[in-house]
Design a protein around this nucleic acid. Structure first.
Length: 920
RNA sequence: GAAUCUAUAGCUCAGUUGGUUAGAGCGCUACAUUGACAUUGUAGAGGUCAGAAGUUCGAAUCUUCUUAGAUUCACCA
């Protein structure tokens, strides 16, 4: 017999247990195989951790992700699968660089990059990344994550760098990566490009100006950005619209915005122009608008070069091309000056207040300036040959585009997205996808593996060699830019599984071939992440993996919702509503924190979290502890491998069939990714069925071996959700050489599951439970102290065959309901004529209480009346339903029978109640 | 402008392919409590399932519309 302390104190156990788990090596599938815990031929289950930013700290979003993933991983490990969960961190290029730059500036270095130079600056960033890396890793451990730390990866380490370069080169050779002069999103503040997906649209008030370039120009245009009009080269009108006649004409427009600024404006036709909007004509500024640039390209393809004038520079100021009066002015100053000029010249027809949404850089927060620049792009529409394909519907050597690859694997369900509705989001994103700008003008990241020497370009994994074979060839300089961070994270599922030993000159194919982890664990089974990075990351992984390997990166994508506060608002510093997971862990324990992020949530649906919820689950963890404490006090000798004994008593049979059912359901639900439902059902079973009912009944009569079996099973079932408290109990029971972490998941007794007759027999205890609850309720209703041992007579109506079971369990009832004498009589209903009795139990048992005149007649009367009011309409409705030919003819027989039965029971009950009322 | 999601008890949510007299937890009310657990137990009050129309023998569940809220994408001349 063991005795646990009275309450579970998470802090006393969690860190100690985590350390034991880590030391055991069981997070590593190789160790599990070596120690004979996992069969080497067992099915694989692998997952990568969406790498948190190195400079980040744990927030509720991470906590939810870690809780959900760890629950899946632990379940599969216990099922005996070769289970691998790979950890890692993301260098988060711009975010990290900007953070370190900010720190250095604060420390009194106004221009860190200039002052330190590339190498020294990067040293500082790397140093910072290393330090904060440990923070996030330790926080992940606090969550109880069973990640295999021996395989930890980093998006910017040597292995990842090598594979990034290899893939870049292959895409370059396939013509999918190209260098082009195009309009990109430029962050003046960050002095870098950003991709379309990194823009956040912000609503802000603006003014729309309607004007003509000059008095002689025939068409009025409208714009919110007059200053860019200094760089207009065309006016676009609808090809069939009111300005049709001007199409093809060219105007030399003088004095635009200032004396002497001449613009050549061609009138072009374009479908994009909407006659109803603005003036029905728009000034085309190819250098400072994506849409205008596309028109420019379209015209060029038609051999009609309309030209391009860049009037805003990378510093955010007007260029010399804007004219001498504007050059060097800020955009704002230029706009004011231009509008002033229009007014003076009487060219401004009207201005209008509007709300416009402006694209801002997610990282730098400033409004981006579209401008033309030579950058590296991934062409998503170009055909290439996919040599080897394991994608359904695409053969080896087929010609495809990246877009097609991304579409195919989701459409053919090789990749399943949960919840399914994100399919639509995914497809519509791909439909509108433009070429992906991958070069960034920052230093922290994978440097573009391209070297220039005059007009020559060299793309390769290594720098171009001189003929002598020394290092970097003379005269060659590497492109200074680095790659978009998502370019490297796009390879995360396979780049983390590569053999860490790098061989110079080796092809990716050979490298993959000698990477055991890759052979064993790719594709991964599940990718679990927030839906906010579906485009950034999920889509890019699909792109990179299908391209590089001709296969999928993962089979299922599971999106969790965003964690919001109890009012459904986003958690933010300014609102002061942030719930810090580490505070919750400190206060209520990791298990409660984890479960609060799983129970009551569903995929893709934002979840509201309150401290009260975590608190409630802390209570549950303690309940589980005390359930175990109680059971252990009643077991002389606990055994890990205890067998399920053949249940003898009615209550044991009842519990056994229910437990069997639960084991089946939990497994099924987890397999279907319904973690919330699984934990909810399990919690309900544990608290009300096991603790409140079964264990209470067991105080009268115990079965040690069954206790042992139930306890083992319940701890196993809970382990994936609440790893610490369950492991703590387990090790109290079996010593710290035994790990619940790697115990075998409980099995469903299929013989019992399939045997309906046996199940019915095992369930028959329900009538005893109902009888007990009925007695309890009556005592409560009549305000009889629950401990007062009153006498009762139990009348069994001789219509149901329940005599045996009631007699067998009479002691259980007496003891639990705290009764005195119980007499059992088998009677006919007539016995109750003109008598005051309570309602029946299931229409077959009537209980008479000896209250020695304690009954309040009025109270009883109103109670019965209330019950009659409740049941009467039901009987009427039910009768009507059953006399409706439409129902009886159309509904399935089983349904009709069930309804008939329900009616019969209700009628019986109603009659009894009416009789009682009459006797009052 | 387009798409998607949400609307069920005071609060947070369940409600499986349409067959419920619509459930749980928290909160509230009353009572109980000396060895598993006050981080507890028992009982109770509380809902015309956002609104309207339709399909059906039957709708919280399916369809359409309306209202409110949220998110994403696009446009922004």
């Amino acid at each position: 017999m063991k005795e646990l302390p009275k309450a579970y104190e998470p802090k006393k156990h969690e860190d100690k247990i985590y350390k034991k788990w880590e030391d055991s090596g069981f997070f590593n599938p190789d160790v599990c195989i070596e120690k004979g815990i996992t069969d080497k031929d067992a099915e694989a289950f692998s997952m990568v951790l969406p790498p948190p930013n190195v400079t980040g700290t744990l927030h509720m979003g991470h906590a939810a992700m870690l809780a959900i993933e760890d629950t899946m991983v632990r379940y599969h490990r216990m099922k005996g699968e070769r289970t691998l969960w790979v950890p890692g961190t993301d260098h988060a290029a711009i975010a990290t660089e900007a953070k370190v730059e900010g720190i250095l500036i604060k420390e009194g270095m106004p221009k860190p990059k200039e002052e330190l130079g590339r190498e020294a600056f990067l040293d500082r960033v790397n140093q910072f990344a290393q330090e904060s890396h440990d923070t996030i890793v330790n926080q992940a451990k606090k969550m109880g994550t069973s990640l295999d730390w021996s395989r930890e990866a980093y998006t910017l380490d040597n292995v990842r760098n090598k594979v990034v370069k290899q893939v870049f080169k292959r895409m370059y050779d396939d013509g999918l990566i190209y260098r082009g002069y195009r309009v990109i999103n430029w962050s003046v503040k960050g002095q870098s490009t950003c991709s379309d997906d990194e823009l956040v649209h912000v609503e802000r008030p603006a003014k729309m100006y309607y004007f003509k370039y000059n008095k002689d120009f025939p068409i009025t245009i409208a714009t919110t950005r007059p200053e860019t009009k200094l760089g207009d080269t065309a006016v676009a009108v609808h090809p069939e619209g009111k300005y049709k006649k001007y199409i093809g004409q060219e105007f030399e427009v003088e004095n635009v915005g200032q004396n002497g600024h001449v613009l050549k404006i061609k009138i072009i036709g374009d479908d994009h122009v909407d006659e109803e909007l603005g003036t029905g004509a728009l000034g085309v500024t190819p250098a400072h608008s994506m849409v205008d640039f596309e028109m420019y390209q379209k015209q060029k393809a038609l051999d009609n070069d309309i030209g391009m004038i860049q009037v805003i520079g990378e510093d955010g100021n007007m260029t010399a091309s804007a004219g001498s009066e504007y050059a060097g002015k800020t955009v704002k100053e230029a706009r004011e000056k231009f509008v002033e000029y229009l007014k003076e010249q009487d060219l401004l027809e009207r201005e209008e207040d509007i709300v416009q949404s402006a694209g801002t850089s997610e990282r730098f927060k400033d409004v981006v300036e579209p401008l033309p620049k030579t950058q590296w792009f991934v062409n998503v529409n170009k055909k290439f040959v996919l040599e080897k394909s394991q994608i359904d519907g695409i053969a080896d050597g087929a010609e495809v585009t990246l877009k097609e690859l991304m579409q195919t694997v989701v459409r053919n369900k090789q990749i399943n997205i949960l919840p399914e509705r994100f399919d639509k989001t995914y497809f519509s994103w791909i439909d509108n996808l433009r070429d992906w700008c991958i070069s960034r003008q920052i230093w922290f990241g994978h440097r573009i593996p391209v070297w220039y020497k005059g007009e020559e370009i060299h793309c390769g994994v290594d720098a171009p060699l001189q003929s002598g074979g020394q290092a970097e060839g003379e005269g060659w300089t590497q492109d200074p830019d680095t790659l978009d961070t998502w370019f490297s994270s796009g390879m995360w599922t396979f780049s983390t599984l590569l053999n860490k030993e790098i061989k110079k000159g080796e092809s990716l194919q050979d490298w993959l071939a000698r990477s055991e982890d890759f052979q064993n664990f790719h594709p991964t089974q599940v990718l679990e992440t927030g839906y906010d990075i579906i485009f950034f990351w999920v889509a890019r992984m699909i792109l990179m993996t299908t391209y590089t390997l001709g296969t999928i990166p993962f089979e299922t994508v599971y999106f969790h919702g965003l964690v919001r506060d109890e009012k459904g608002r986003k958690m933010s510093k300014s609102l002061g509503n942030i719930i810090n997971p580490l505070d919750m862990i400190e206060k209520y324990g990791t298990d409660a924190t984890r479960l609060s992020l799983i129970i009551g949530t569903s995929p893709g649906q934002d979840m509201k979290l309150s401290e009260e919820k975590v608190e409630g689950l802390r209570n549950f963890a303690n309940k589980l502890w005390n359930i175990s404490r109680f059971m252990l006090m009643n077991i002389d000798d606990v055994r890990v491998d205890v067998e399920l004994p053949e249940p003898i008593t009615d209550k044991d049979k009842f519990l056994v069939q229910w437990l069997n059912h639960i084991v089946f359901d939990i497994g099924k639900l987890i397999d279907e990714f319904k973690l919330s439902a699984a934990s909810d059902i399990l919690k309900n079973f544990t608290w009300s069925v096991l603790a409140d009912d079964y264990l209470e009944y067991s105080k009268v009569e115990k079965n040690q071996q069954l206790f042992n079996y139930i306890l083992n099973t319940i701890l196993k079932l809970w382990h994936p959700f609440m790893p610490f408290v369950t492991e703590a109990i387990w090790q109290e029971m079996y010593g710290d050489e035994s790990f619940l972490l790697v115990q075998k998941w409980p099995k469903v007794d299929l013989e019992l599951k399939g045997n309906e007759k046996k199940i019915n027999e095992y369930r028959s205890f329900w009538i005893i439970d109902a009888l007990y609850k009925h007695i309890n309720m009556q005592k409560s209703f009549y305000k009889v102290s629950s401990v007062k041992r009153i006498d009762i007579i139990v009348y069994l109506l001789d219509i149901k065959n329940i005599e045996d079971i009631v007699k067998r369990n009479i002691e259980i009832i007496r003891s639990r309901a705290k009764l005195g004498e119980i007499n059992i009589e088998i009677v006919n209903y007539d016995k109750f004529k003109n008598k005051l009795i309570g309602p029946s139990v299931a229409g077959s048992i009537i209980v008479e209480f000896d209250l020695s005149g304690a009954i309040d007649k009025d109270a009883e009367k109103s109670r019965i009346e209330k019950e009659i009011d409740h049941i009467k309409p039901y009987v009427l409705a039910q009768t009507k339903k059953l006399s409706n030919a439409g129902f009886v003819d159309n509904a399935p027989v089983a349904v009709v029978d069930a309804e008939k039965k329900k009616l019969a029971e209700a009628v019986e009950k109603l009659e009894a109640l009416e009789k009682q009322l009459g006797s009052l």
